[in-house]
Design a binder for these strands. Structure first.
Length: 339
DNA sequence: AAATCGTGGTA
DNA sequence: TTACCAAGATT
């Protein structure tokens, strides 16, 4: 018997696995599918350090998927505030409802893939980690590790098919969940984007990128577009130690979240919408905030002793503003006005 | 299928 | 300060 790449990786994992709140020990029975699912959704494009406090809050407040499904959507959205990519929270609510309705999580990758918020990666990850099903789990870590192991020269995203095929080649039939998590731990701690620590890597002898002498060159990536800068305004409307908050509509930018009223910068791109209230506005300063595909310069306009704007909204007491569940952009604006 | 969708950490 | 980027999904 010749040891394979997966054998070497799993041996390494047995001694070096990270201890994470949602994770079982290597070789141990799989953890609660609810915790696996919740952690995987939170971890999409999000660092472990950022997820940890949110995960603890969610599982202590809603210990089961049934309890999460029974919670008001606005409570869940507020609890998600600050974590970003709020469509995940909207889909979390939908998914919890479907799962509670059908009496638990499905166990196969194909059925998991049909749930809201679970794409190719997350469906495979939950199948492997929570149900010990053999699945090819490809996230950004796996892409990097595989691109280096096989020295794949095609740039991302063109190389995705080849990387997936190569990942399938080294994915074992047994311990698929441990293998997936081992690949991610390796990518996170050893086979890092910059300055990979090849001397500590259990796969260094298998790695064609290392043989080239410049493993950090992989994966090759297509150049990125520059981010445009947009301008916009937000309105701080205050009255009797309370501020007027609205709820953003729909599925777009910050959709479903509480917010300050604005001039339409997210919809129109150029702002230029009408203020939500007549009267004189005082400039409180500028907030700079960078989103995924553009940067925003948000001018914050203030009116105190204001009358109530027309349309839907609520007066929110200033002393409990941290419980309003504002996205970080508006938390910055509030800090500008109140400090 | 290219564009859209947050945030905080790191170099 | 800027630039990059992290357990991607959706349309």
């Amino acid at each position: 018997m010749t040891a394979t790449v997966s054998d070497r990786l799993l041996d390494w994992y047995d001694g070096h696995a990270r201890d994470l709140p949602w994770r079982a020990r290597p070789g141990a029975p799989p953890p609660d599918p609810y915790r696996v699912w919740l952690s995987e959704i939170m971890l999409q494009q999000t660092t472990v350090a950022a997820v940890k406090p949110y995960f603890e809050t969610f599982v202590s407040r809603w210990p089961t998927v049934e309890e999460l499904a029974a919670a008001p959507q606005e409570d869940i959205m507020a609890a998600w505030a600050g974590l970003g990519y709020y469509s995940r929270a909207r889909n979390l609510v939908k998914c919890a409802g479907e799962v509670a309705q059908r009496g638990g999580f499905p166990m196969t990758e194909g059925e998991l893939r049909e749930l809201p918020g679970l794409g190719a990666y997350t469906a495979a990850a939950v199948a492997a980690i929570a149900f010990d099903r053999r699945a090819v789990v490809v996230d950004a870590n796996v892409e990097r590790v595989v691109a280096r192991l096989f020295a794949i020269e095609d740039p991302l995203p063109v190389a995705r098919k080849a990387i997936r095929a190569a990942a399938a080649e080294i994915t074992p039939e047994k311990r698929a969940g441990d293998f997936a998590q081992a690949m991610m731990d390796l990518g996170s701690g050893i086979c890092t984007t910059r300055d990979p620590k090849c001397l500590l890597c259990p796969l260094s002898a298998d790695c064609r990128a290392r043989a080239t002498g410049d493993p950090a060159r992989f994966p090759v990536k297509a150049p990125k577009k520059a981010k445009p800068v947009r301008q916009g305004r937000a309105y701080w409307i205050e009255r009797e130690n309370a501020v007027w908050l609205v709820r953003r509509e729909g599925k777009g930018m910050l959709g479903g979240m509480r917010a300050l009223p604005d001039d339409g910068w997210s919809a129109r791109g150029d702002g230029l919408g009408e203020p939500p209230l007549d009267g004189d506005w005082e400039g409180a300063g500028m907030v700079r905030h960078t989103f995924t595909h553009f940067a925003l310069e948000l001018s914050v306009q203030v009116q105190r002793d204001a009358t109530q704007p027309s349309g839907e909204g609520e007066w929110w007491p200033l002393d409990t503003l941290n419980e309003a569940g504002l996205p970080t952009l508006f938390t910055k604006a509030a800090r500008l006005v109140t400090s």
